[in-house]
Amino acid sequence: MNFFLSYIILAEIFAIVALSTNFLVGVIGIFSVSQAAIMGVGAYAYAIAVMAGIPFPLALLLAITLCALLNVATSLPSLRLEGDYFVVTSFGLQIVATAVFMNWSAVTGGTSGIAGIPAPRFSGLSFDEPENFVFLSTFALGLASAGYWLLMRSSYGRTLHAIRLDELAAVAAGRHVLQMKLGISAVSGAYAGLGGALYAIFMSFIDPSSFEIHVSVLILTMLVVGGARTLAGSILGPFIILAVPQMLTLLALPPHLIGPLRSLAFGVILVSFMLWLPKGLAGRKI
């Protein structure tokens, strides 16, 4: 039972991060392989804040704001330019973030990470147990989905689509393309920060390996499988992809090969979907 609940909770958390990726990859069509890094910043920021005695809502807000700002700051230079700079900054951000998580030991605990992150409690109800936490994660995913839906149907959302479809025509229409992209980049960062904070609460332990580049690839795979630019896609993807490791554990594999095999599977999935189903299962053309 607990096992099943954990699966649900993790899938919900990753669905929030997949939505964050969707804003970039699906909505404005830029590549991102640093979602895990941003998620990690959210997780560390939350953990450090809460353990310093800051109350839950404030710590959460702090994590979200920090991630939004970070995403804007790191994407600013590459968004100002055309072409493939974004690929480089995205890879770079991921690698630098991992280096910081590992090496800034005084704050992040280095390779041993941070353990014993307390779960919030509301009037006697603690979110330690999956039975309770699942309400929190479901609620958060509900809010995130509502936000996504509202944003996409607003005039802002329509403008973002237009920018992806033809940036030059959007400029000719007098739109402030950079400002719009930065706005969505902030939202994307906020979503990843929320996902990271929830992850930290649920696991009560974080270390650099949870936010490595493999995880970023995992998140991208979720989006690609579910399908870009739809709410359904971002939610479906994590539920499917998180089931893959479970299936791998059913095969009796040597333990040291499980990690690489899983990543291999994700690689194969990415390539196959790009070749044969770039829309994903429930998405739109990218």
Partner: peptide, 16 residues
């Protein structure tokens, strides 16, 4: 974007 994601998938395949 599609080419890039495919290339990233290939990278994962080769490394692993």
């Amino acid at each position: 974007l599609v080419q890039l994601i495919a290339s990233l998938g290939l990278l994962a395949v080769l490394q692993n």
